[in-house]
């Protein structure tokens, strides 16, 4: 998509920075590096990278704080790379505006896929009213959805949920975020609503509901709408 995208790595561990640098550069990205939250913010402001890989355990401040400050003015994708694997940390980071969350140790292939996906979803932000993904076609203007060119019958809520996923393809959306967006802030605890509608949507759009290819469960955290195969 964007082979010369510039990626900023914010991590205090020299070894991780070195390995990420080699990984990213050998895959055609250019890299920038920062070892502290402060340095990371400065470089973000100066270079405006296309994507940021952010560690949470920074020496000068928690990565959560860095992310919050960054998100006040930086709109491009931020992927968290952290050893912290509690649901609490993941949900906090996503709620603070992270696009994705990868737990260390991570597989290189997985990281590259997430980076591609985040860069892609950041790309067509000025999208037309039609989102096309994996044989699905979501027309935001006419509020219709086609699967393999066949019109799907969706309820208003099912449509709203799918459109929200489509607009945020590739990104992990937390349960709280989805509930607030679709049902309103009084319903953020009503996880069962979400479960029911996700099940209904999967029945309509997935080939096999037991092995979903579109709506992926991020256990304990939320869901991710897969942005196409490669």
């Amino acid at each position: 998509m964007n082979p010369t995208a510039e990626i900023l790595v914010i991590d205090d561990e020299t070894s991780i920075r070195k390995i990420l640098e080699i990984t990213l550069q050998s895959n055609g990205y250019t890299t920038l590096q920062a070892a502290t939250g402060r340095e990371g913010l400065q470089m973000t402001a100066v270079h405006s990278p296309d994507l940021i890989l952010l560690d949470l355990g920074l020496p000068d401040e928690s990565g959560h704080a860095t992310l919050k400050k960054m998100r006040e003015w930086f709109g491009k994708p931020v992927i968290i790379l952290s050893v912290l694997n509690s649901e609490e940390d993941i949900v906090t980071a996503l709620d603070n505006g992270a696009n994705d969350y990868l737990i260390k140790p991570f597989r290189t292939g997985e990281l590259l896929a997430r980076i591609r996906s985040a860069l892609r979803s950041a790309g067509p932000e000025d999208d037309g009213p039609i989102i096309r993904l994996n044989g699905l076609e979501i027309d935001l203007a006419t509020r219709t959805v086609k699967k393999d060119n066949e019109l799907l019958k969706l309820t208003a809520t099912q449509y709203a949920l799918l459109a929200l996923f489509g607009k945020n393809a590739g990104k992990v959306l937390t349960h709280q975020y989805l509930l607030r967006e679709i049902w309103g802030s009084d319903f953020v605890d009503q996880l069962q609503y979400l479960r029911v509608f996700i099940a209904q949507l999967r029945k309509k759009i997935e080939k096999d509901v037991n092995y979903p290819e579109h709506i992926i469960t991020e256990s304990g955290v939320g869901y991710r709408f897969l942005a196409g195969s490669n």
Binding site: E13, S15, I16, I19, L20, I22, T23, S26, N27, G57, V83, L84, N85, K104, P105, F106, R107, T108, G109
Partner: peptide, 28 residues
């Protein structure tokens, strides 16, 4: 948290490095 950081960081480095080294064809 501090222990898991201390153990996972070097493991992440090893996995990250070997993933790159084992990739075929190698771009390194």
């Amino acid at each position: 948290n501090s222990l898991s950081h201390e153990f996972r960081t070097p493991i992440a480095a090893i996995i990250g490095a070997t993933d790159n080294l084992l990739e075929e064809p190698s771009r390194l």
